[in-house]
Amino acid sequence: MTEKAPAPLIQFAGVTKRFGALTVLDDFNFEVAPGEKVTLIGPSGSGKSTVLRILMTLEPFQEGRLTLAGMDYQEPGGTGPFKASERHLREIRSHVGMVFQSFNLFPHMSVMRNVAEAPVRVLGLSRDEAQARAVDLLAMVGLADKKDHFPSQLSGGQQQRVAIARALAMRPRVLLFDEPTSALDPQLVGEVLAVIGDLAHEHDLTMLLVTHEMRFAREVSDRVCFFDKGRICEQGSPEAIFTAPSHPRTCEFLASVLR
């Protein structure tokens, strides 16, 4: 079976990102195909979360080029740190969703409103449509009965599942997971991974996952990328990376996390 490789959905070409004197991404090159599930692993500070935050337009970058579905993040003649207009950034954001380490639900909104608010305010859906969509998604993450609760009444695992439903309600093409289970008590990690694992079967959804859950990464990803010092040091199928890493830094890292 020889399938022609589809054009990449996401393409980093020579992207450099600095925080002051610190270079977080260094001439970074990275491509993601549509529908691909990619896990980013590596020591903290190696730039993996920064890749997600740049894709979500939470952080600008200084050099290089980044495109999403052929759309450049930076506009020619664009101003400000992002070198793009707010309008352009919102156009990009409409294709991308993000799940945060600390959930970041809106504490003053019910679970239902957390999920339905953006579809109403941003996509212009009617309340009824948005709530129907929210009910479906909450059922999918197993929280249909919690729709009238407030975030403070939920466990961390439940909050994170609401956050996943909230991100999905915007129907993004790309969903970014930034250490989605790192803030959870160990016994709550499974329920969140189960939801993410289900999403991994969605053919059209492109997923980028930063995680320290190596066994899970191995199960769900099409590709694993090992980050070190702002670059991808080694990448390949989960099998290749986890069973036969070739780069000494990868071996060292895996040995330290897998013990």
């Binding site: 939470l58 305010r121 991100a167």
Partner: peptide, 28 residues
């Protein structure tokens, strides 16, 4: 900042973020 980032990730505009995310929490 996390609240503002969540609003941005959901593609809220500045006005919506102020009225529906920031102000309701700030007023308390």
């Amino acid at each position: 900042v996390q609240q503002l980032e969540a609003a941005r990730a959901l593609n809220f505009g500045r006005m919506h973020t102020l009225i529906h995310v920031t102000l309701p929490q700030a007023i308390i």
